[in-house]
C-alpha cells in the first residue's frame, strides 16, 4: 500500500474499522457459533475488502470486527512484523481504526493477526490470535464436493483422510504433510489449522488464548476455543513429530542472530551458497538478543 494513500472521504466517511456495523454484527454472530462448535467452518458473507482475496481478507475481517479503540494490535507474516503482508495490513488497520495502538512485542498485544505462524511466546488469556486461512477444509484433498464434505464433517467421518495419511506412510515411511497439518478438536471436527508449520500445532492444544481462523475467499470462520483438546491426526503406532532442527551430527542448530536452540528456524541461503538459520519469529529473536546484550552489560 502506498504510504501516502488516504481513504476517499465521502459525506459519511468510513466507520471505525472500515466495515459497516451490519457486516461486523454478522461476523460477530459467526464467531460465537464457531466457538460453540469447535472446528466447524461457519459460513459467513465475506465482504469485498480494498485488497485482493488471498491477502488475508478473512483474518482482516475478523480483526476489524473484534477491534476496539483500547486494543493493541500486532500483525505478523511468517513470524515477521516487517514483511509486506504484515506491514500493509497493519497500516490499513491504523488508517481505519483511529486510537488503536500497534506493537511488535507479542506480550503487549491484545489482538494478534498472523499469517502462517503462532508466536513463539506462550499466549495468555488476555490475548486473541487471528489466523489467515487460504484453504479452510482439511477434507478437500479427498472429497471435491462441499455438500458431501459437510456431511462427513458432521458425522466426524475422517476415514478417507486417514487413508490418505496411511498411503503416505506406505510410500514414504512417514506422513509427509509439512504444514496445514489436519488437527482434531474436542474429539470431533478436523480442521486445517492454516499453513502453520507442524512446530506450531501442539500449541493449539489447551491454549489459554482464543484462536480464530478466517478464510476470506472461502467465506468461512472457525475457532479453536481456549483450553480445548487439539490433536494432530495420527495413528496409534506412528507418533506426530515436529520439524527436526538437528545437523548431520545430531546437534541442534542455533539461530545465527540470537543463538536460540528452542525456536522454529528459517533456513537462509546466501549468494555464496552457505546455509544459515535464523528464528522465524522476529519479535522473539529481538527479545533474545536484547536479553543477551543486557546480560553482557551487567
Amino acid at each position: 500500500m502506498n504510504a501516502h494513500y488516504e481513504l476517499p472521504l465521502e459525506d459519511a466517511g468510513y466507520s471505525f474499522g472500515f466495515l459497516d456495523e451490519y457486516a461486523k454484527k454478522e461476523v460477530r454472530r459467526c464467531i460465537l457459533k464457531a466457538i460453540s462448535i469447535p472446528g466447524y467452518q461457519t459460513p459467513y458473507a465475506s465482504r469485498e475488502m480494498p485488497m485482493g482475496r488471498g491477502f488475508g481478507t478473512g483474518g482482516l475481517q475478523l480483526t476489524l470486527s473484534l477491534i476496539g479503540a483500547d486494543d493493541t494490535l500486532k500483525v505478523i507474516d511468517q513470524g515477521s512484523d516487517d514483511s509486506v503482508n504484515a506491514v500493509n495490513l497493519r497500516q490499513f488497520v491504523q488508517l481505519t481504526c483511529p486510537g488503536v495502538e500497534v506493537t511488535e512485542k507479542t506480550q503487549k498485544a491484545t489482538l494478534i493477526q498472523s499469517r502462517h505462524r503462532i508466536p513463539e511466546k506462550m499466549l495468555t488469556e488476555q490475548q486473541i490470535l487471528v489466523l489467515q486461512v487460504p484453504y479452510p477444509d482439511a477434507l478437500v484433498v479427498v472429497e471435491p464436493s462441499e455438500a458431501r464434505r459437510k456431511v462427513m464433517h458432521g458425522e466426524a467421518d475422517y476415514s478417507r483422510l486417514l487413508v490418505k495419511l496411511y498411503e503416505d506412510v506406505v510410500r514414504f515411511d512417514e506422513i509427509t504433510i509439512s504444514h496445514r497439518y489436519p488437527t482434531r478438536l474436542n474429539g470431533h471436527y478436523v480442521i486445517d489449522p492454516s499453513p502453520i508449520p507442524r512446530w506450531d500445532v501442539p500449541r493449539l492444544h489447551q491454549s489459554p488464548a482464543l484462536v480464530l481462523l478466517g478464510a476470506g475467499r472461502e467465506k468461512k470462520i472457525y475457532a479453536v476455543p481456549p483450553y480445548t483438546v487439539a490433536e494432530p491426526l495420527v495413528f496409534d503406532d506412528i507418533a506426530f513429530r515436529v520439524e527436526d532442527f538437528r545437523d548431520a551430527n545430531g546437534k541442534r542448530i542455533a539461530c545465527r542472530c540470537c543463538g536460540s536452540t528452542v525456536s522454529f528456524l528459517d533456513e537462509l541461503i546466501d549468494d555464496a551458497g552457505n546455509v544459515t538459520h535464523q528464528c522465524s519469529d522476529s519479535s522473539y529473536c529481538e527479545e533474545q538478543q536484547e536479553t543477551i546484550s543486557a546480560r553482557k552489560q551487567a
Binding site: E21, R28, L32, I35, I67, G68, A69
Partner: peptide, 18 residues
Amino acid sequence: HPAQQQQLFRSLLDAFSY
C-alpha cells in the same frame, strides 16, 4: 452505539471462550 456494542461483544466473546 457501535463503540459500546463492540465493548459488549468483547465481554460476550470472553463469556463464550471461557
